[in-house]
Simulated scan of single mutants.
Amino acid sequence: MSVEVDARRLLSDEEIAAALEDLPGWERQAEKLCATFNFSDFSEAFGFMSRVALVSERLFHHPEWSNVWSTVDIAITNHAAGGLTELDLEFARRVSKL
């Protein structure tokens, strides 16, 4: 499944701020969208990471992330475009639905 978004056009500060209003838990840190997800234990966190990996592969857009026991930190940006694009927002939307 491919996604039909413009992965090359950088978003304006206003577009990013407006999109973040509909993405609870996500915040902008410089040119990345970041979120922290907390789970009851490592197994639950790892299961979430597996589902995020499937989203990443479908979008062909891969995050920077880390896991410490029950916590998963995710940061996403479009390195090829040099900042945030609609593809980053689509990634965050899909991950938030998990």
Rank of each mutant, 00 (worst) to 15 (best):
D73W: 12
F46P: 04
F37C: 00
P63Y: 04
T36K: 13
G47F: 04
S50M: 09
R93C: 12
F42D: 06
W65M: 01
S40L: 07
D41M: 13
L98R: 14
D6I: 05
G25L: 05
F46T: 04
E86R: 13
S12D: 00
V72M: 03
R9T: 15
M49A: 07
C34I: 07
G83N: 01
D22G: 06
V52K: 06
P24F: 08
P63V: 07
L20A: 12
G82P: 01
T36M: 06
S96E: 15
E27V: 09
E64R: 13
A18R: 15
T71R: 15
T71F: 02
E31Q: 14
V5C: 05
W65C: 02
R94G: 11
M1Y: 04
W69R: 10
A17S: 11
G83S: 03
G82H: 05
M49C: 11
D88V: 02
L10T: 05
A81V: 06
G25F: 06
N78C: 13
F60T: 15
S50K: 11
L84S: 02
E90F: 10
F37M: 01
H79K: 11
D41L: 14
E90P: 12
S56N: 08
L33M: 08
L87G: 02
S96M: 14
D88A: 02
S56C: 10
V3C: 08
E14D: 12
S66E: 14
H61I: 04
I16R: 11
E90M: 11
F39A: 08
D88H: 03
E14K: 14
K32Y: 09
F37I: 01
P63D: 05
N67V: 03
N38M: 00
D13C: 00
A53C: 02
E21Q: 12
M49N: 03
A80P: 00
E15A: 09
E15P: 06
D41P: 13
S40P: 07
S12V: 01
M1K: 04
T71V: 15
G47M: 09
V72R: 04
A19N: 10
E14L: 07
G82L: 12
V72Y: 03
C34V: 15
F42S: 09
G83F: 07
S96N: 15
S50W: 09
A92M: 02
W26Y: 05
V52S: 08
E90K: 14
M49R: 11
T77C: 06
N78A: 12
M1F: 02
T85M: 00
A45G: 05
D6T: 06
A92H: 05
T85S: 00
E86F: 01
F37Q: 03
S70I: 00
F39P: 04
E57Q: 15
R58Y: 00
E4R: 15
E57W: 07
T85G: 00
I76V: 15
S70Y: 05
S43C: 11
L20V: 11
M49E: 01
T77Q: 06
C34N: 11
L84V: 07
L54T: 09
A19Q: 10
T36P: 01
E21L: 14
A17F: 01
L23D: 10
W69I: 10
K97Y: 04
D41V: 14
N38C: 01
P63T: 08
M49V: 13
V3D: 12
D41I: 13
